[in-house]
Simulated scan of single mutants.
Amino acid sequence: MRAFAEDLGVGVRTVTKWEALAADTTPRPVMQAVLDTALSRADADAKLRFELLLMEDGRAPIRGYYQGSPREWDYETWTDDLGRAAACLARQDFKFAASLVDRWLRRFDPHGLDNHGLYLHARSLVLLGDLQRDQGDIQGPLSARQTYKKAHQLFNDLDVPRRAAQVELSLAVVEEMGGRLQPAAKRYEMLADDGRLSARDRTRAQLWVGTALSKEGNNAYAVGVMDEATRRFEELEEPDDWSVAHQKLALAYRADGDLGNAVRFIGVALSNRSTESPMQRVRLDTAHAHILLSDKATSDSGVHLLTQAAATSSKYGLSHQLASIEGIRHAYEQAE
């Protein structure tokens, strides 16, 4: 009690009086403001205990706390759960990630949320879209595309341009995954020069211009674009993106018939692989296998690696990657 009084800057007798009279005392407005400030500085657990005491006492929620709507401690827990969900997605633990995101999307009606709540709702939608995209759900009413569009609208309404641009980048990825290569390349080109994005995201957009063009057969131009993105990743000191860029360059060289450079660049990617998630491992193994299959001397190793990548894709529910692997396998068998 003495420490609390000292923290508030009041006498111990004042705090003793509050303790004795409990609900029968009403602090003066100036002192109420001091108490409100103390509550605002408290941690989430203290705020939760305070609100539970009010509820047990049958009293109405205090100013800033709304019955049936998120409280401040809800927002802190929500933010923590979004971080946990992102970590689960990084290792393709889709089931737990979906549970963490879904509990918040279902808990509160977005029409009753303030701007803080709407921001967290939009971030939850982005994570749900990422989950749907990674599982290959890119078309239809319950697809990544529709989820991203909802998040994009919210970020625009909230006037958060950086987040809105990041969602536009994700929508372009979905376009590329759906085979709409020209629209995806054009969107990537626009975002590569978009000041709303960070330097890293702009460089990723530039790299993806190259991947879309390479898939369309424009390999010579794609190599130039991706080579520039690779240099920019090195300048930005982004080792993971730099490694991925080498992987994509290797595939572009393979498609252009330059197996020497394809082997050289995939070797760099393999030597600089970071701590891998299942998704990263599948992508790198698939790219490596694709290159190995292009040479009869290494084709057996390529088939083995492709089978390994397919097994990992099946285990983690990576349906888009599995479809890509089957396409590579079918093309190889047809060529044979």
Rank of each mutant, 00 (worst) to 15 (best):
L128W: 03
F108R: 00
I138A: 01
R71F: 00
E56G: 14
A311I: 07
A87M: 12
W242I: 03
N115H: 07
K149V: 08
L48P: 08
I325M: 05
G11P: 04
I266S: 00
L118D: 03
A250M: 03
E235I: 04
D43V: 10
M31T: 01
A255G: 13
H288A: 05
R187W: 07
L48Q: 08
D193M: 11
Y188D: 12
M190H: 14
Q92W: 09
G224E: 07
F96V: 14
G129Y: 01
R63V: 07
R329E: 00
M279A: 11
C88Q: 07
Y253P: 02
A86H: 05
A38V: 08
A90N: 04
R84F: 07
Y119W: 02
Q67S: 11
E333Y: 12
L236E: 10
A323W: 15
G217D: 04
A23T: 12
A90I: 07
D134H: 13
T147S: 15
L53C: 15
S214Y: 11
G129F: 01
H121E: 15
Q166M: 10
Q206A: 08
A222Q: 00
L213R: 06
A97F: 06
R200E: 13
G64K: 05
L293E: 04
V126C: 08
H290G: 09
H330Q: 13
A46R: 14
A184E: 04
